[in-house]
């Protein structure tokens, strides 16, 4: 971080606000603006986007003029693991089914913690959690989520013949 940025939090916030505002404004240019009396679909978003850019600019100005707190350590690993776990769950839940999706979500999510140990206690907890979720949400409340998705359906067939 450059030394002349005296308030880093204001700097990054300003940057995000200006960025979001500019993006919003650019998209909103496609919608009809209308008049104050008869506002078009583009009126409200464009006004909002301009205000957001203005706020962002003030924040950027403050980043160089006032003294503020630094941005503390960013937890990259937990952030990526948690967000990634949720995305993986979303990808798997309708394809491999809820059970597999939950296992991946919990394992990946838990791995985001530095305290995570893949031991018997964790496995038992995980199995109990998956079983409880399946029982409560799918069997109990009847949510239309497949426990075993189309990817793994054939596997069930195999197990069926073995039995």
């Amino acid at each position: 971080m450059a030394r002349w940025i005296t308030s880093p939090r204001d700097f990054w916030t300003g940057l995000i606000y200006v960025g979001l505002g500019a993006g919003g404004l650019w998209l909103a240019l496609d919608y009809k603006f209308g008049t104050v009396g008869r506002m078009g679909p583009g009126y409200f978003p464009r006004v909002l986007a301009v205000i957001l850019i203005a706020i962002g600019l003030v924040s950027l100005f403050r980043a160089f003029s006032s003294k503020g707190e630094p941005v503390t350590h960013i937890a990259i690993k937990p952030l990526l693991m948690i967000v990634g776990a949720i995305v993986a769950y979303g990808l798997l839940v309708h394809t491999a089914g809820l059970i597999v999706a939950l296992l991946v979500l919990i394992l990946m999510g838990a791995a985001g913690s530095s305290q995570f140990r893949f031991d018997v206690k964790a496995i038992v907890g995980m199995v109990l959690l998956v079983a409880a979720c399946s029982a409560v949400f799918v069997k109990g409340l009847g949510l239309p989520i497949p426990l075993v998705g189309p990817w793994l359906q054939p596997l069930l067939g195999v197990l069926g013949t073995v039995r």
């Binding site: 776990a85 979500l105 999510g109 838990a110 913690s113 907890g125 949510l143």
Partner: peptide, 19 residues
């Protein structure tokens, strides 16, 4: 301990949002 608690929160949120 939090590292036991939060995976369950994750699981409940993810199923809830799907509902």
């Amino acid at each position: 301990p939090y590292h036991f608690l939060y995976p369950s929160i994750l699981a409940f949120c993810s199923i809830g949002v799907l509902s």
